Computed example of a mutant assay.
Amino acid sequence: MSCLPNEAEALITVRDLIRWGASRFREAGLHFGHGTDNALDEAYYLVLRSLHLPFDLPAVYLESAVTPRERAAVLKLLRSRVTTRKPAAYLLGEISFAGFDFDVDERVLIPRSPIGELIERGFSPWLTAPPTRILDLCAGSGCIGIACALTFPQARVDLAELSTGALAVCRKNIARHGVGDRVRACRSDVYSGLGDARYDLIVANPPYVSAAEWKTLPPEYRHEPRMALEAGSDGMDVVARILEGAVDHLVPGGTLICEVGGSVEAFEARWPRLPVTWIEFERGGDGVFLIGRESLAEHL
């Protein structure tokens, strides 16, 4: 994909670049689902990030003219989104989650969980007291656990992750946010590397895509680690292990919050009588349940 010389020169303002990018994205039939859900928002995100501008930029600044150097950099980024089919976060090397920026690359799933909204609200109204020991299971980039640490300054947080590549990204983000005194990254296959540690709150965004569904995912998702997405014939293999071990790793009165995304039917087929609470979100997203330790102990 390229611009004719005169076409590129006609792209004068920030708004021109956003419009051009959105048109090319729609023309190429890109898929969106890693922070945006449409071509216009994706172009807006990439153009403003490339120009180091805030997303709450007053509309008048969209009419600002870009320099030739800026235009070249933006066009290169927009073209890369089309030709590589890589999600925007991988092209930029970072993404915002729960109000904080995190490093990401193709060793980790791109943060997009609605759990971010819960963290921003301090898990209100679901938690009656601030948690002091938190476990982020299947941590990936560490965004959930680190955002929790930044939200609850008194909390100590473990990031449990099996992938050594993902753990390297976790440690990068721990250093980025200066929380190394309270947050540790642990190589752990679910609970296997945690010993007898117990937590007030376990938060998990595990793989929950079925093997059949994974084969049908758009190209953008194929850039993400398969082990972060696919989990057996019904997508519930890792979720089952999380549920089975949660009682032994929660303190009395502790809480498990876990995402299963679009696999709610598969979850309810496996555990039809488990008394979970499905959380509703103001900004969209679903498939996140909450259950207390005592309910788990009674029903599993």
Score class of each variant (00 low, 15 high):
Ala149Val: 03
Ala149His: 03
Ala160Trp: 05
Val183Trp: 05
Ala175Cys: 04
Glu161His: 12
Gly178His: 11
Asp181Glu: 15
Ile174Tyr: 01
Val183His: 04
Gly178Met: 11
Ala149Pro: 02
Arg171Met: 09
Glu161Thr: 11
Thr151Ser: 12
Arg171Cys: 08
Leu150Met: 08
Ala147Ser: 15
Ala168Glu: 15
His177Cys: 09
Cys148Glu: 03
Cys170Arg: 08
Ala155Phe: 09
Ala149Trp: 06
Ala166His: 05
Gly165Arg: 10
Val169His: 08
Ala149Asp: 01
Ile146Lys: 01
Ser163Glu: 03
Val179Gln: 11
Gly180Lys: 06
Leu162Met: 11
Glu161Ala: 10
Val179His: 12
Leu167Thr: 03
Gly180Arg: 01
Thr164Glu: 15
Ala166Gly: 03
Leu159Val: 09
Phe152Cys: 04
Ile174His: 00
Ala149Arg: 09
Glu161Arg: 12
Arg182Gln: 09
Leu150Pro: 00
Ala155Pro: 05
Thr164Gln: 14
Ala155Leu: 03
Val157Leu: 07
Glu161Tyr: 13
Val169Leu: 10
Thr151Ala: 13
Leu159Tyr: 12
Asp158Ser: 12
Arg182Val: 08
Ala147Phe: 03
Ser163Arg: 06
Arg156Gly: 11
Val157Ile: 12
Val169Gln: 02
Cys148Ser: 08
Arg182Ser: 07
Ile174Arg: 00
Glu161Met: 10
Gln154Trp: 12
Cys148His: 07
Val179Trp: 13
Val179Asp: 09
Ala175Leu: 14
Val157Lys: 07
Gln154Arg: 15
Ser163Leu: 03
Val157Thr: 06
Asp181Val: 06
Gln154Thr: 15
His177Tyr: 13
Asn173Leu: 07
Ile146Ser: 01
Ala168Trp: 04
Asp181Gly: 14
Ile146Asn: 01
Leu162Thr: 09
Gly178Asn: 11
Cys170Asp: 03
